[in-house]
Amino acid sequence: MGQHADSSIYYVPHGTKWPMVGSLGLATTLVSAAMWMNGASAGEWGMYIGLAIIIFMVFGWFGQVIRESEGGMYNSQVDASFRIGMVWFIFSEVMFFACFFGALFYARALAVPWLGGAGNNAATNELLWQGYVSAWPTNGPGEVGGDFGTIPAFGVPFLNTLILLTSGVTLTLAHHALRANQRKPLVIWLAVTVLLGALFLFYQVEEYAEAYGHLGLTLGSGIYGSTFFMLTGFHGMHVTLGAIMLFVIMIRCMRGHFKPDYHFGFEAVAWYWHFVDVVWLGLFIFVYVL
């Protein structure tokens, strides 16, 4: 069915094996990971096999969708479905990070002050941990994880903030180039965006090495260490996925994919990358600065 076919006619995809393959890969990965964490030696290899199946599924399924899109098989209704699906996906990601920000807020603004006897909670301090003085950052009562230092906000984190904000600008320039059907600037700006994403990840690895090697800040450093690494670590994972998707989009642009008036695949990745940028701004403010 053509891309510009009657919008009242909806494209129904043919039968496909990829959902089943993806389900098999996810189930194998999760079950094997659980086995590995409980001491079963076969779990490690099972997890690697599951991840390999997932990677195989991603290449196969995405390749099929790309071929169908380039073949003009999607009409305006399918395009609208893709957009709605991407909106809901990003909403789920918003809720995902909201849980971790909520945990940080609860620990910092409520639980730690209560343990220190703030407000009308003097009895909490006396009964649960007498003598504990609330402060942030903290590893909690009992000095869980030992002493640690914190990453200065206006060092690597500030540099990474500038890098991500700049990557948002370069991606927007690439989008404008695509809409103007200017292929060379499109590919150049996309390449710059991918490099900026890789640079962000390089500095995050450097930051983690500094935290573990010199500052004593680890995932086991009490409530501050756990919230710090959960928030920044999951964000780094999202940057990694976003950079991979941008690289794939760049290769597709080099092959002549996408049209000035029809390029949802590009837009979906751009939405995701801008979402990652916004999350980092929240991280920078609430984890590093305040």
Rank of each mutant, 00 (worst) to 15 (best):
I151G: 05
M95F: 10
L283D: 09
F247W: 13
Q130E: 15
F154I: 07
H263P: 08
S81C: 07
A98K: 00
D147G: 13
G222V: 00
G282D: 11
V21E: 01
F89T: 13
N160D: 06
F56I: 06
Q77N: 14
F228W: 04
W189F: 12
M245C: 09
A33D: 10
Y272K: 04
F91M: 14
I249W: 05
A122Q: 14
V278F: 13
S81I: 15
A40H: 10
S167N: 01
W88V: 14
H235T: 08
P137M: 06
V133G: 03
G149Q: 06
G22S: 09
V192L: 09
L219H: 12
A98H: 05
G2Y: 01
V21T: 13
R108Q: 10
A180L: 02
L165V: 15
L127Y: 09
A34M: 13
T28K: 02
G213W: 05
I66F: 03
H257R: 04
R67S: 14
V133N: 11
L201R: 00
A109N: 14
P13N: 12
N125H: 10
R255H: 07
M237V: 15
E93M: 14
L159E: 07
Y272W: 07
L24C: 06
T16R: 12
T166P: 02
I55K: 03
H238T: 04
T172P: 02
G119E: 10
T28G: 12
T161A: 04
L283A: 08
L128N: 12
M35F: 05
F229H: 02
F228A: 12
A34C: 06
V289A: 13
K184V: 15
T240Q: 00
L26K: 02
G102W: 03
L201V: 08
N160I: 06
H235P: 11
E70Y: 09
F228I: 08
D261Y: 11
V187T: 12
I251M: 11
Y11E: 02
G216L: 03
M73W: 01
G131W: 02
A191E: 05
P141G: 03
Y224V: 00
H176N: 11
I285Q: 09
G50E: 04
W280F: 10
L201D: 04
S221K: 00
T172V: 13
M57A: 13
L231Y: 08
W273Y: 07
F97H: 08
G213L: 07
N160A: 08
T170G: 03
I66C: 02
N125T: 08
A52V: 11
T138M: 05
L165I: 14
T161Q: 02
R108V: 04
S23D: 06
T218N: 09
F59A: 08
V187M: 03
V187W: 07
A174T: 05
F154M: 15
L104I: 04
A52R: 08
V144A: 12
R255G: 06
T29W: 01
G131L: 00
P13M: 12
V144P: 01
W189D: 13
A103V: 15
L162A: 15
W273V: 09
W189I: 06
V78D: 08
Y74C: 03
Y262R: 14
L162Q: 04
V169R: 03
F286I: 11
D6Q: 07
F96L: 12
L196Q: 11
E143R: 09
L171K: 00
I188K: 12
H4S: 09
G60V: 11
H176E: 13
Y74H: 11
M47E: 11
E68P: 11
Y208A: 15
